[in-house]
Amino acid sequence: MGFSRDLRPHSRRGLRSYMHEHSNGQSGMNRAALFRLPSLSLRFIPVWRRNFLVWRKLAIPSILGNLADPAFYMLGMGYGLGGLLPEVGGVPYLTFLAAGTVCYSTMNSATFEVLYSGFSRMHVQKTWEAILNAPLTLDDVLLGELVWAVSKSLLSGVAILAIVWALGLAGLGQTLWLLPLIILIGFCFAGMGLVMNALSPNYDFFMYYFTLVITPMVLLCGVFYPVDQLPSWLQTVSAWLPLTHAISLARPLVQGGEPQHILAHVSALLAYGSIGYYIALVLTRRRLLK
């Protein structure tokens, strides 16, 4: 016993596995399995339902958190700041703010869900691991998370919309098109956020995303003021951000008009969401199925 016995096989093994590794091309999943397009199956439903049942237990603080923050922003700034302004974009400031707040509240809700809550389930509680031991695949789990985040953000968007209705800022009929739009916004930001979830080593990592992606969007995409107030280079940046596309569709709907360039805006939101979701799926496969 002792060193000689321990060391010799070790170094030999090292060389052999090195050669094996390189003759084989790669370790982990093969490329086809890694980059396969998302499989869409109704098996996502029990995953969605699990999240829904947990949410139901904590619904009141959750709804408050989702609703109160954007609602106070909208009401406080709408009345407070709005009183100082004649009109913004041709309507009272509160009405102007309403469309932005619906979009921004939806974005925030979807983002928080896939970042913090999703990361808890994936990394901290290992809930996904437990599910993957059952006859479900990672594609099912991620689809469940995506649809869940969309559902939760729909609730947040509708909550703001309910305030808009209650205050008589917009009629019910003209704003019904906002419902599919809210779903689309939720999809867009859930898909994007899942990429961060897949990459994150810990909760602190999400600060980068909020500081570098979400906050600029809140400030540059026309939530609080029209984008044309910005210098042209910032307007160019803004045009690339998905929240701008969301608000471009939402604002005319709230104000009773018809949005311009519908196809372009819808395509932009769909593209951000689906490309994000696909990248997230590949990265999550690499992370968990290695």
Binding site: R43, P46, V47, R49, R50, L53, V54, K57, L58, Q125, K126, T127, E129, A130, I131, N133, A134, P135, L136
Partner: peptide, 25 residues
């Protein structure tokens, strides 16, 4: 039975079993 317990901390004992049954359809 995994090495590390990954029970659902937000559920009760019974709810854990119910949720897991659903994953099996």
């Amino acid at each position: 039975v995994p090495q590390m317990d990954n029970l659902d901390p937000d559920f009760t004992v019974r709810e854990n079993l119910m949720a897991y049954g659903r994953y099996f359809g």
